[in-house]
Amino acid sequence: MSVEETVALARRGDRRATARLLTAVENQTGDAAEVAALTAGGDARVVGVTGSPGVGKSTLVSALIGAWREAGLRVAVLAVDPSSPFSGGAILGDRVRMADHALDEGVYIRSVATRGHLGGLAATTSAGVRLLEGLGFDVVIVETVGVGQAEVEIAALADTTLLLLAPGMGDGIQAVKAGVVEIADVYVVNKADRPGADAVVRDLKAMMSLVKREPREWRQPVVKTVAQEGGGVDELVAAIAKHRDHLDGDDRLAVKRRERAAAEIRARVDAALVRRYAVPEDLAEAVATGRTDAAEAARRVLGDTA
């Protein structure tokens, strides 16, 4: 089957065709460039979901899928999972939690292995998002791996970034340490039926009161949810829609998309440089045994002996 035929099938909702296209993009096969050309365009809402492990990211994503499907929207999910130390593939925990949507033809869920990439995403996540947009999905959700404070790449990728917190996990302090006031667009206090939820909300609002904003600058709302029961999900969907409306004004969305493209280019350049300037074992041994220093070794790798 040609790439063009595969793209046509994927646009009609064929999951196997979509999976083949994503595999080509992720592995940068010989067909990757043609796939990208045939799937250019699209205007999906790209929603990032991040937060510490255990706050209920996958459960909330499942609830959001249900809400958007009720509205008649096609939804795709890239769930970034830790890589297996044996196979290098993704551990499919997130897909298990979203099993309620497994038979829905309007939903596509893909687990993506980090393959050692830091920052909560896989190196090819941005290309995967662009592909799914081009295949006609209305919403693309990217759920990060849940690595904690280093998980900031999602802000550059998503149009709207949701930061999930939960009571009883010390997340208020962790939020300050991670600098998430700058990266989150909507705060979600999940498991809000537990004691301490109101305290987390107060901590977030107190934190935001310390940040100076211009009159037309976005002010992050705090939404309380109980994702397991669907509580607060409609309010969260409304908050996401309101942020999208904010981005549509004053060319903010276009700026965000350009920043996303620039970040992807930088990531690909970085990956190419790592491959091009691989460190020889004998040079690493020389540094380890003290025969040379790391700075001199780096100059040798770069071919710069000046």
Rank of each mutant, 00 (worst) to 15 (best):
V180L: 02
E235A: 15
R213S: 05
R213K: 12
A175D: 03
S209V: 02
D193E: 11
P195S: 00
E182I: 00
G231M: 07
P215Q: 12
D171Y: 01
K191Q: 15
R213F: 03
D193K: 03
D234W: 06
D234H: 12
D193S: 04
A199M: 15
K205A: 11
Q220K: 08
M169Q: 14
R219Y: 10
M208C: 04
V223T: 09
D198A: 13
V180Q: 00
K191N: 10
P221G: 11
R202P: 04
A206N: 12
M169N: 04
G179M: 09
V233T: 03
P221T: 13
D171Q: 01
V222D: 08
V181I: 07
K224N: 14
A197I: 14
E235N: 11
V186H: 06
Q174R: 15
D193A: 07
D185G: 02
R202H: 12
V189W: 10
T225R: 04
G231Y: 07
Q220D: 01
G231C: 09
R219M: 13
K191E: 10
M208W: 13
G179L: 03
L210Y: 00
I173F: 10
M169D: 08
K191R: 15
K224W: 11
D198F: 05
E229S: 13
A199P: 15
G230V: 09
D203V: 09
V180K: 00
K205D: 07
K205Q: 15
V222E: 07
W218H: 06
K224C: 15
E182D: 08
